[in-house]
């Protein structure tokens, strides 16, 4: 079993301190995100504010959803959400939920993040039929009509009377590409 298996970047070799005043990311430990861009000491690391803004802008997930959560980076561009706080940095194996990949042009939420926090999304959510949902969780790409934005969408279906977010799909050129990681795919 593996967890999210998207490309992880090279974690090795990133633990050296940079020559200039800004430090580099250390792949062996968790560092809490700075509150704002002004507080930043590691190049390229997004701030908590930027992450909260992104969830609002991209999906309409309100900021208060993450009240009480702290955000952490471990491994370049891999962000974690933890329901509490600990002293930073901390060298352990896991801290809360892997929830967002940054440091690439388009940020990408994880399957588990969308399932945990995606219920309050208001846009960029594509509701699919049961058959389409089956293909999606099995990892298949499929042609589906969609009038909205391209890019990473929350894929949801109706389950037991409510909309249930299933995971993330990449919508491009009329096609919804399943981003459900291999270890998480199911043949239902």
């Amino acid at each position: 079993m593996t967890e999210e298996t998207e490309a992880d970047g090279s974690e090795a070799g990133e633990s050296e301190v940079g020559a200039d005043s800004e430090q580099e990311n250390d792949g062996g430990r968790f560092d809490r995100l700075p509150e704002t861009d002004k507080d930043r000491s590691v190049a390229g690391r997004p701030s908590r504010e930027a992450v909260l803004d992104w969830w609002v802008d991209r999906y309409g997930v309100p900021r208060e959803t993450f009240e009480g959560y702290t955000f952490w980076e471990k491994g370049s561009g891999k962000l974690w959400a933890f329901a509490g706080d600990l002293s930073s940095p901390i060298a352990i194996e896991g801290l809360g939920l892997t929830f967002l990949r940054v440091r690439q042009e388009h940020w990408k939420p994880t399957t588990n993040a969308v399932q945990r926090f995606g219920h309050r999304a208001t846009h960029n959510v594509i509701e699919v039929s049961e058959g389409e949902a089956r293909a999606f969780v099995a990892g298949y790409d499929q042609e589906i009509e969609w009038e909205g934005d391209w890019g990473y969408l929350i894929v949801a279906r109706e389950l037991a009377g409510e909309r249930e977010p299933l995971g993330v799909g990449l919508y491009l050129y009329g096609e919804l590409r399943s981003q459900v990681p291999k270890g998480r795919q199911r043949d239902l």
Partner: peptide, 21 residues
């Protein structure tokens, strides 16, 4: 077994866990 632990906790949506080896 730790990767199974992390995988399972994440699928269950657990956000309050710190995982150690």
């Amino acid at each position: 077994r730790l990767s199974a632990l992390r995988f399972n906790l994440e699928r269950l949506g657990v956000t309050c866990a710190a995982v150690t080896n």
